[in-house]
Design a protein around this nucleic acid. Sequence first.
RNA 1: GACCCGUUCGUCUAACGGUUAGGACACCUGGUUUUCAUCCAGGCAAUAGGGGUUCGAUUCCCCUACGGGUCGCCA
Length: 453
Amino acid sequence: MSTTVRTRFAPSPTGHLHIGSARTALFNWLLARHTGGTFVLRVEDTDAARNTEASRDAIFSGLKWLGMDWDEGPQVGGDYGPYFQSERNEIYDRYLAQLEASDRAYKDESGATRFRMPDQPITIDDLICGSQTINLKEQGATRWDAKLKKDVAANPDLVIRRADGSYIFHFVNVVDDIDMKITHVIRGEDHLSNTPKHAALFEALGAPLPIFVHIPLNLNADGSKMSKRDQGASITDYIEQGFLPSAVCNYIALLGWSPKDDEEIFSLEKLIKRFELSGINRSNSRFDFKKCLWLNGEHLRRLDADELLQKSTPFLTEKNIPLDDPRLPAALQLIRERAETLDQIPAGIAPIFSADIEIEEKALAKISGRKNITDVLQGLHHSFADQSDWSEENIKASIVATAEKLELKMGALMLPCRIAATGKAGGPDLLPLLVLIGKNIVLDRITQLIAKL
RNA sequence: GACCCGUUCGUCUAACGGUUAGGACACCUGGUUUUCAUCCAGGCAAUAGGGGUUCGAUUCCCCUACGGGUCGCCA
């Protein structure tokens, strides 16, 4: 048996959990789960000035919300800790001593420690991008100055420790991957160009290279780079808008990875089963929120009643919809067929639970011009009032009877009836909705609408 | 600017030299539901451009264009 897969997600806690980072985490997590390996969470907080506790918590809770757990890391521990880089200085000191002992690192005039870049070509193999060879000493001898817009002379030796003793990303990243026995480094393609440097460090530390997997980046819908402020960039956007974690995972998995067949609605379990590194493609992708929305609707419809209630609860509470109302389960079943996100649920079923409704102007405009609108509403009112058993069948019978009396088609009465009862032109299936609202309230609302016209 | 990666319908993608270039979202049209949504059927729509290699290129090679990335004592 080959060695067990160990992957890691190594976020820097300097902001919220970005959707692109979430996807990187997901790919690492999926590979570990697919292969029965280990998923490690490591917090890269070596930049004390930019790290915040709030950000760290947002990342943890974001991962958990998405459904990802970690086998080693903060909160759960593990054999290769600590899992905060800020607590690993002794380990870094030890590895640094190793480099210094072999004269691969030295202190420069400013007091910072530099890694002596080897003067020979370094070749890395990337599972996605192929192999590439580069001479870092040659290429590092100049540096692009963005302001001057030209190359300037530079020291090719990599700074790995600041004069104040704190360590630099490239060094700690490599040391931790060695020390934590990471087998697959799955990360964004923005790190591809850094990888030869990392490979040089691995070599100097006498460690074998992990398998590098640089995944393509996600861009905005217009092709621009996705930054923190862009729509849908933060995982909290999805939480607040009522997306389901499984749908978000499903969608981001499909950005850059393909099962190679026509299946595309995946639960987390199914993703684990199907995920293969060979299904990752090479080109950047753009976000398509409409497809994400569609996928969310699909996941919403697959929820069982209990899950639906549980997922909807925060959104219902926010809009003061009573959780203990016996009509709620039926209402949720009614609305779930046409909701794409959880936050669309309360508005759709609010007419059942709130005493007052607001008549939308657009809706009103659709019927206010009709000649016989008052007759229609009065006819419905009379016929409804006569029903002693407020059932779907009887309501339908009332509508049909009223339509015949007025020499109209049943369809012509549905919209006025809907607007009277809910204030909206669209919504859940009307007959069961009327049942749930209740006879007396429906009658009152018809009366109120007549008064308005 | 140098180096690196990429480029199939508007978008996500399939097709590991031979397909009428497939699927999905979006969009459009019809049907079902006497409402709304679902659903069903159909339609629109792509190999960036130019050279090779080959009997045959979406597929392999080169050039150009475009997009993205890297070039920090940020991660």
